[in-house]
Amino acid sequence: MKLAPKVIFLVRDPDGFGPAIADALLPSSESKFTRETSSFELSLEKYGIGDRKASGDLIEFVDPHGSPQVSILLLPNYGPPIAACAVKEVLALISSEESSNHTTIILPYVMKALMVNQELANPASSERKVMLYGAEIGGTTDIIQSMIAETATPPLLQIHCESLACLLQMVRVLNLPTVLIASHAPDQSKRSAGQEFEAWYEVGHFLANHMGLCFSKERLQQKGIEKPRSVQEPWRALYG
Results as ranks from 00 to 15, higher is better:
Leu157Arg: 12
Arg128Ala: 07
Gln145Met: 14
Gln195Met: 11
Thr151Arg: 05
Ala182Ser: 10
Cys161Asp: 11
Leu168Asn: 09
Glu198Asn: 04
Val203Gln: 09
Glu136Cys: 12
Gln145His: 15
Asn209His: 09
Glu136Asn: 14
Gln158Ser: 14
Ala193Pro: 06
Ile143Ala: 15
Ser125Cys: 12
Thr178Tyr: 08
Arg172Trp: 06
Gly139Asp: 13
Ala199Glu: 03
Leu167Tyr: 04
Thr141Val: 09
Cys166Trp: 12
Gly138Thr: 01
Val130Gln: 14
Pro177Gln: 14
Ser189Arg: 08
Ser192Gly: 08
Glu196Gly: 05
Ile143Asp: 11
Ala185Thr: 03
Thr141Ala: 11
Met211Ser: 03
Lys129Gly: 14
Gln195Gly: 15
Glu127Asn: 14
Gln169Glu: 13
Tyr201Pro: 04
His210Leu: 02
Ala199Asn: 11
His160Asp: 10
Leu156Thr: 15
Lys129Pro: 06
Glu202Trp: 01
His184Trp: 09
Glu196Met: 00
Ile144Met: 14
Ile148Pro: 08
Ala149Gly: 11
Ile148Phe: 15
Val203Tyr: 13
Asn209Gly: 11
Ile143Gly: 06
Ala149Glu: 14
Leu168Ala: 13
Pro186Asn: 05
Pro186Ala: 06
Thr153Trp: 10
Leu180Lys: 00
Leu132Pro: 00
Asn209Leu: 11
Ala124His: 13
Val130Asn: 11
Pro186Ser: 01
Ala193Leu: 14
Ile137Val: 07
Ala182Gly: 02
Met170Tyr: 14
Ala152Glu: 10
Arg191Pro: 00
His205Phe: 08
Ala152Tyr: 07
Ala149Met: 07
Val179Phe: 12
Ile143Ser: 14
Ala135Gln: 15
Ala124Asp: 10
His184Ser: 14
Ile181Ala: 02
Arg128Met: 08
Ile144Ala: 03
Glu162Phe: 07
Phe197Tyr: 06
Ala193Ile: 12
Glu198His: 08
Met147Gln: 11
Asp187Glu: 05
Thr141Asn: 01
Leu174Pro: 04
Val173His: 12
Ala135Met: 15
Val130Ser: 13
Glu150Arg: 07
Glu150His: 13
Ser189His: 10
Trp200Gly: 03
Ser192Arg: 02
Pro177His: 08
Met147His: 12
Leu157Val: 15
Met211Trp: 04
Lys129Ala: 13
Asn175Val: 08
Leu180Val: 02
Met147Tyr: 04
Glu136Asp: 09
His184Arg: 07
Tyr201Gly: 05
His160Asn: 03
Tyr201His: 07
Ile144Val: 06
Ala149Trp: 10
Cys166Ile: 09
Phe206Arg: 03
Tyr133Asp: 06
Ile159Gln: 08
Ile137Thr: 02
Glu136Val: 05
Val171Leu: 04
Phe197Ile: 04
Glu162Asn: 15
Leu176Asp: 09
Leu167Lys: 06
Leu132Ile: 03
Ala185Cys: 02
Thr178Phe: 05
Leu164Asp: 10
His160Leu: 11
Leu156Glu: 15
Pro155Trp: 07
Arg128Pro: 12
Ile181Met: 04
Met131Asp: 05
Gly204Arg: 02
Ala182Met: 07
Phe197Gly: 04
Gln158Gly: 11
Tyr133Thr: 06
Ile159Tyr: 01
Met211Phe: 13
Thr141Phe: 03
Glu198Phe: 09
Ser183Pro: 00
